[in-house]
Design a protein around this nucleic acid. Structure first.
Lengths: 224, 224
DNA sequence: ATTATCTATAGATCTATAGATAATGC
DNA sequence: ATTATCTATAGATCTATAGATAATGC
């Protein structure tokens, strides 16, 4: 049984070694945390999945909570940045007259594209975030990393709906994020419920519908 | 320090004692599981909250998983029955011509009313279900208890939208349940995001908007 | 000489069971 | 005589730390 580093005999620099180990650990932790949550995963589980000893996790990440946050932080910047850029671009393109649907396309489709393009690691990260988002503990992480991008969306929505109350805007966003998080969670329930007509992994099907669906919802709040 | 049974000196029958203990245990477990999930709660936590020894949990519920399922099962019947009845009544009232919004009012408002009426225990149960619903493990429980009531809603939606594909119906439902579960979860995020304009506990505010919002979303799927 | 990884182990919990005690039931 | 509750404890597992070993760095 060869050690994992002897498979490729190529001599690795320490920086490379470090980076590779960090990434393998984060990938394994991301996968496991996304399915079982912080408390449903032991450091042994993570170490075993990587093929290392649990002490190495402490060497790189100090403790479990810190590893959890590192998983969250690793990709948060990229999704945030891409959505921010997409909304900024849309704001320019719409020349001061953004629509609800346009804003939602920039916010939602950009994110769904990222998960589809990113393959399994990004899909796992999406499920991880979905899990974090509906817990009280995890909420602080969401606040810290995603408030700016959400508030940017809210700002566009307010421009598109100048006569709306803040309450209508924020509750509408609340429904949007609920739909998005349930999508990212991919629990498999919609697959069974629909008898296979829908598949949890089919983000393309969601992307085809979600922005239009939610935009109509916002517009309907006026007539109340 | 008096024992908890000596506070009220009234002589209790064993059946009463049993029922009371069962309920206290389930309440405590429901509260804790709703906040921290299956693995985030120890039997010691539950026992400590009730003021009993952890062995009594095993006496009544055998093991931890069984206690978890008992929490889920205790109230599942009532929410299911009430929504089923409301949708059945609506089906009769609408005389074969149900609307999307009518069906969603029966499904969503009935449930939100139950949580508002039921006070803290029911609110905790809602958060518990929200947590269960977006996990892979918990999905089997959702299937087992809530498939009939969801399929009843789907049936009404199909009547209201006879030219819609199954995929559109089920993806629409997926968005609806996402918004509902995020509401039940009450993570507190919308409170902070909105600067206090919205409050996670304000189910009345959600009820005022959600059915109308989602109904418009469904109708918008046609023009694609 | 420094950094990555492993061995050994402490100390704390956690779930679960066996068996004792205290209360109600008839 | 039966049921509710507690005491004592086994056995497993978990996080974390100290210190040893093996690799790269210069």
């Amino acid at each position: 049984m060869p050690k994992r580093s002897t498979v490729k005999k190529k001599r690795r620099s320490k920086a490379e070694q470090r980076a590779e180990s960090l990434e393998q650990i984060l990938d394994a932790a991301e996968y496991l945390f996304s399915r079982h949550g912080l408390h449903g995963v032991t450091l042994r589980d993570v170490a075993h999945r990587v093929g290392i000893h649990t002490t190495l996790l402490h060497y790189y990440f100090d403790d479990k909570r810190n590893l959890f946050e590192a998983v969250f932080a690793r990709r948060a910047g990229e999704t945030s940045r891409l959505r921010m850029a997409a909304m900024h671009q849309y704001e320019l393109d719409s020349a001061g007259r953004p629509t609800v649907e346009g804003a939602l396309h920039a916010f939602l489709d950009t994110d769904l594209d990222l998960y589809m393009r990113g393959g399994e690691p990004w899909m796992n990260y999406g499920a991880f975030c979905a899990r974090v988002s509906n817990t009280t503990e995890g909420a602080a992480l969401m606040d810290a990393y995603f408030d700016p991008v959400v508030l940017k969306l809210v700002n566009l929505l307010k421009q598109a709906l100048p006569d709306y109350s803040d309450a209508d805007i924020f509750w509408g966003y609340h429904f949007v994020t609920g739909a998005l998080m349930t999508t990212l969670g991919r629990s498999g329930r919609i697959d069974r419920l629909s008898g296979g007509v829908c598949r949890s992994n089919d983000f393309a099907a969601v992307k085809k519908r979600i922005a239009k669906f939610m935009a109509a919802g916002f517009l309907a709040l006026k007539e109340r």
